[in-house]
Simulated assay, not measured.
Amino acid sequence: MKLAVVAANGKVGRLIVQEATDRGIDVTAIVRSENKTAAQSVLEKDLFDLTKEDVKDFDVIIDAFGIWAEDSLEQHTASVQHLADLVENTDKRLLVVGGAGSLYLNPEHSLQLYQSENFPEAFKPLAAAMAESLAALRKRDNVKWTYVSPAIDFRPEGEKTGDYVVAGEELTLNAKDESIISYADYAKAMINIALEENYVGQRISVFQK
């Protein structure tokens, strides 16, 4: 498998690259500036400038792009749509590092986490923008996409336990009634998903037991 990680210099992207490298996977870091990852192969190019020619040799593309500036939140949808355009009508798979805010709180899937009363106001614009990007991706029936939401408590410095669960679209808690996962365990889950070729056309979630 030939793998590319877009926005690989970010915290999640770097750990995904490291996980892939540790397993001997052929991984290319796609970055806008100097490579800060463990990848030996690097494509230095802005995400929005990528072409079909740039990605023609990859089997799986992992989108680790994220932006937090409120005046740029529309780039979440724009970036996903651009990458989807590059792989549409091919066997290439697009895996997206998603958010937890769009997870559902009820079986009817009518209420998302970010729409709930207790969700922090400061994070609602970001969560709403990421939910919109997922909604746009759902319309792409000509793309082999998978959207992977982390747990609510997504810990950058958390330890790698290797003990995680793949769940569905509804917020799922562990035995301690917690929704937690470290970046490192999320990276492991993402690489496993890339290797197993499951969950095509689905949004899933991952959390620590």
Rank of each mutant, 00 (worst) to 15 (best):
R93Y: 14
P156D: 05
D91S: 12
G101Q: 02
V206A: 03
R93K: 11
T51D: 05
A20R: 01
G24F: 01
V60N: 06
R32K: 12
E196T: 15
A194L: 05
Q81W: 03
K92R: 14
E74D: 15
T146N: 05
V42F: 06
R155P: 09
E121S: 11
L94Y: 02
G162K: 06
T77E: 15
V27D: 03
E88L: 02
E170S: 15
L137V: 00
L113Q: 09
F154A: 03
L83K: 01
E70V: 14
Q81S: 12
S116W: 02
N106A: 01
A69N: 11
D163E: 15
I152W: 06
L134E: 11
G98H: 05
G24H: 09
K144T: 01
F207P: 03
S133R: 13
A136G: 08
A136C: 05
R203I: 00
L15S: 07
T90K: 01
W68I: 15
F119K: 02
G162C: 04
K45W: 03
V27M: 10
D59Y: 05
K52S: 10
Q81I: 11
Q40C: 06
K52V: 10
K92A: 08
N89D: 15
E70C: 02
Q202R: 14
A100E: 07
L94H: 06
S33P: 11
D22W: 00
K2R: 12
A127P: 00
K209C: 09
S182G: 01
K209Y: 08
L3Y: 04
L73D: 04
L113K: 01
I61Q: 04
D71K: 08
F123K: 02
A129V: 05
A100Q: 04
G158N: 08
K11I: 13
A38L: 13
H76L: 07
F123Y: 15
A135Y: 15
A7D: 04
D54T: 07
F48M: 15
T51K: 02
G98W: 11
G158Y: 10
I191C: 00
G158E: 10
I67F: 09
K188C: 13
D57E: 09
E132D: 15
M1V: 02
V55C: 01
E159M: 15
P120N: 08
V200D: 09
T28W: 09
I152G: 01
L111M: 13
L43V: 04
I16Q: 00
V12M: 12
W68R: 14
F48E: 10
A69Y: 08
V166E: 11
V42E: 13
A20Y: 00
Q81F: 10
K144Q: 09
Q40T: 13
